[in-house]
C-alpha cells in the first residue's frame, strides 16, 4: 500500500455532486422506523386500574386515576413526557394491552405545562 498525504481526496471529490447524507431539518423528510418508541397511547376502556405501569415506570412519569366510580370505571392516564424516558416498560407491564406506543418523537414544546398530557 502506497503511503502519502491526502489519500481521501478521491473519495471527497466523488461526494461533491452526490446527494448529501443530511437533510435540512425541519424542511426535509424525516424517516422514522415504525418500531421506534415514541409517546404512548392509552385505551381507557381496557384499563382495569392495576397500576402495574405506575409501579414499573422508572421515571415516575405515569399516574392513573379513576374518574368514575368503583363499579363504573373511567380510567385516566396522566403522562408527563418531560419525565418520560421512552423506554415503554409500561407497554410491557400492562397485562390488558391498554397502553401502546407510536413512533411520534417530535414532541418539543415551549412550556413545561404542555408536557403533562391527560390521555
Amino acid at each position: 500500500m502506497r503511503k502519502g498525504p491526502g489519500k481521501i481526496t478521491g473519495e471527497a471529490l466523488r461526494h461533491v455532486f452526490a446527494k448529501p447524507a443530511t437533510i435540512s431539518y425541519p424542511a426535509g423528510e424525516l424517516v422514522i422506523d415504525k418500531n421506534y418508541r415514541g409517546r404512548i397511547n392509552f385505551d381507557a376502556s381496557k384499563c382495569i386500574g392495576c397500576k402495574l405501569c405506575v409501579r414499573d415506570c422508572p421515571a415516575n412519569a405515569i399516574t392513573i386515576d379513576n374518574l368514575g366510580t368503583k363499579e363504573e370505571k373511567k380510567m385516566q392516564l396522566t403522562l408527563n413526557y418531560a419525565h418520560c424516558i421512552f423506554c415503554c416498560q409500561c407497554v410491557d407491564s400492562c397485562n390488558k394491552d391498554a397502553i401502546s406506543f407510536e413512533p411520534n418523537i417530535e414532541l418539543a414544546g415551549t412550556s413545561r405545562k404542555d408536557m403533562i398530557v391527560k390521555l
Binding site: 481521501i8 471527497a12 447524507a21 418500531n35 421506534y36 418508541r37 421512552f86 423506554c87 415503554c88 416498560q89
Partner: peptide, 28 residues
C-alpha cells in the same frame, strides 16, 4: 472529513439498532 464519513456510516447502524431495540441510544 473522516468524522463526517464515519458518523454517516454509524447512522445506518443506529437506524438498525432503533428498528431492533426501539431507541437510537438507550435501546431498552
Amino acid at each position: 472529513t473522516l468524522l463526517m464519513y464515519s458518523w454517516r456510516d454509524r447512522e445506518l447502524v443506529l437506524d438498525v439498532l432503533a428498528a431492533l431495540g426501539g431507541n437510537r441510544v438507550n435501546y431498552g
